[in-house]
């Protein structure tokens, strides 16, 4: 039987765009058993369909990617790019089919840790706290600052990870390491802390003027007490309602 596929199967540029677009739905069907498995297979499908025109091979390749998978949703772009790199090699007969799942399995844990540390614990708090501060100073431009600042980094890194994964395969790890994300993450967390403090400084002056300097001192006392109680494990909800009850009482009496 004649082989239907080309001698050097590769994924074209338009298909790569389609995979990247579909990767934005990675977590649409997040589930406790397979986690991002369905999203990963859904994203990769256009590339697999191009590499494997035969229905049996396409089915087999798709089944490979329905096993349990979970990582940071942005960093997953690197693994998706790398999976295309490996599937191209598998389609050419240069690698056994197991190679792609070995690649996925070895990278999903470290990239999840890296992505969580940088995006969820550094970039997002920094962008959120800074934009909350900006919204006190420049009003409706605050959310614009948030979206522009956050997504300039997020989308650039997501696209870069995808391209690097596809070009470098297993070597994508060194490309990501060169990004120095932990270094920048530490500075972003400093910005987040400073922004939260500045919001507290401005908010302390927002107490009704009629209550004078005592209100400002009370605000600082409340801030410090809340911070200490949270450190001791108090629930933020309990603190919010406790502070509200106290403030309502004081506001009604004085």
């Amino acid at each position: 039987m004649t082989e239907a596929r080309s001698p050097q199967p590769t994924v074209g540029g338009f298909t790569l765009w389609r995979v990247f677009w579909r990767s934005l739905f990675l977590q649409a069907a997040w589930n406790p058993k397979g986690m991002q498995n369905l999203g990963f297979a859904y994203a990769l499908y256009p590339a697999l369909a191009e590499l494997y025109p035969e229905p049996e091979r396409l089915q087999e390749a798709t089944e490979r990617h329905l096993c349990c998978f979970n990582t940071h949703p942005y960093a997953a772009a690197a693994i998706l790019g790398g999976a295309i790199y490996h599937e191209e090699r598998i389609a050419r007969g240069e690698e056994p089919p197991e190679a792609v799942n070995l690649f996925k399995g070895s990278l999903m844990g470290p990239l999840a840790a890296l992505g969580d540390g940088f995006f969820w614990f550094s970039l997002r708090p920094a962008a959120g706290a800074f934009a909350a501060l900006m919204s006190l100073l420049v009003g409706l431009w605050g959310p614009v600052v948030y979206l522009a600042g956050y997504n300039a980094v997020h989308l650039a890194l997501r696209a870069r990870f995808f391209v690097a994964g596809h070009r470098l395969g297993d070597e994508v790890v060194s490309a990501i390491a060169a990004s120095r994300l932990p270094f920048f993450g530490e500075r972003l967390r400093g910005l987040a802390a400073a922004s939260a403090g500045a919001v507290a400084g401005l908010a302390s002056l927002s107490f009704p003027r009629a209550h004078g300097a005592w209100a400002v001192l009370g605000a600082w006392g409340l801030f410090a007490a809340a911070y200490v109680l949270l450190a001791k494990g108090a629930s933020p909800y309990a603190l919010a309602y406790g502070a509200a009850a106290l403030a309502l009482f004081l506001g009604l009496v004085f």
């Binding site: 708090p125 959120g128 706290a129 909350a132 987040a192 802390a193 939260a196 403090g197 919001v199 507290a200 908010a203 302390s204 927002s206 107490f207 009704p208 209550h211 209100a215 605000a219 409340l222 801030f223 410090a224 809340a226 911070y227 949270l230 933020p236 603190l239 919010a240 502070a243 509200a244 106290l246 403030a247 309502l248 009482f249 004081l250 506001g251 009604l252």
Partner: peptide, 18 residues
């Protein structure tokens, strides 16, 4: 009274963020 509650919530929210 509710106006004071709003200011108090801002302080708790800033502490929670920090």
């Amino acid at each position: 009274g509710l106006a004071v509650v709003w200011s108090a919530f801002l302080m708790v929210a800033a502490a929670t963020a920090l």
